[in-house]
């Protein structure tokens, strides 16, 4: 454990080295937040509430969605792809550590660094230009945090399982983009699923993506409580268990198939 906490600490240091990535993400998130908020304002011009949600809640949803996207940043897929491409995966594999635990520690370190470099500026910009994202009720703060934590793990496992392909497929850059944008669309991070057609909503609720963004967001704005909240968190736990199992099975085989490029 001590090893991995040190890896995490070093990653925080390393993340501080490159500043431009960080600014890029702030700008991107600001653009997404602003355009989405204009979209909601236009939509709500002739209506007080849509599907039982007020404009204020929708703007809060938008700001918090950007915040969650910072917390759900993963690097593991790129980390594996790049290491396999450059052949530095050899260095990862020659050390007396579990490489996936190292990848997790690195991602955790990254997110901690992003809390200061990205999350704070985004909240600040959101508060000034859009709306102060107030919690629906004080009681939901705990449920929101629990749900967000579960979302973090589910998201990381998805990324890690996906990233294992890179051990054999090698060039994954295009696929990584596809995955990123699919999650954006299908998780309700921009447009909540209650605006989607009924059948699509039911289909999407069977996938893990909705539980990354929409569930914690709904808890935050107070749209999800009582039975639906319990149901949501339970499904999150089920996905966590299923993905952990798949991850465990695959990671044993993944490193065996590794190809070392160059020399």
């Amino acid at each position: 454990m001590k090893i991995y906490s040190y890896v995490c600490k070093m990653q925080i240091l390393r993340s501080m080295t490159y500043k431009f990535n960080v600014y890029g993400n702030i700008i991107m998130q600001t653009i997404i937040m602003l355009t989405t908020s204009f979209f909601w304002k236009a939509l709500y011009q002739n209506a007080e509430t849509v599907q039982g949600v007020e404009i204020g809640s929708m703007l809060t949803y938008t700001v918090i969605s950007s915040c969650i996207s910072v917390i759900l940043t993963t690097n593991v897929e790129q980390r594996i792809t790049r290491s396999v491409e450059k052949g530095t995966i050899a260095v990862d594999l020659m050390r007396p550590v579990n490489i996936f635990a190292v990848f997790f520690a690195e991602d955790l370190g990254n997110v901690v660094a992003l809390l200061f470099q990205n999350l704070l500026p985004i909240i600040f910009i959101g508060c000034i230009f859009i709306q102060v994202p107030l919690l629906a009720s004080g009681a939901s703060v705990l449920m929101f945090l629990i749900s967000l934590c579960l979302a973090f793990f589910i998201n990381w496992l998805l990324a890690a399982i996906f990233g294992m392909w890179a051990f054999t497929a090698i060039n994954m850059h295009a696929l990584l983009q596809v995955k990123r944008h699919l999650i954006r669309l299908l998780s309700g991070s921009m447009i909540p699923l209650w605006f989607f057609p009924e059948w699509l909503r039911i289909v999407l609720e069977a996938f893990p993506f909705v539980y990354l963004y929409q569930l914690p967001l709904s808890i935050y704005i107070g749209k999800c409580d009582g039975m639906s909240l319990i149901r949501g968190i339970t499904i999150q736990l089920v996905w966590l268990a299923v993905l952990s199992f798949i991850f465990y099975i695959l990671q044993k085989r993944a490193a065996r198939k590794v190809m070392i490029q160059g020399g």
Partner: peptide, 23 residues
Amino acid sequence: FGQRSQLDWDLRLGESFELLRHI
């Protein structure tokens, strides 16, 4: 490996060693 390093590109040499000390 003569052709690739296990040292961390973004860190100082001493920090790289310190990481290995923990590993």
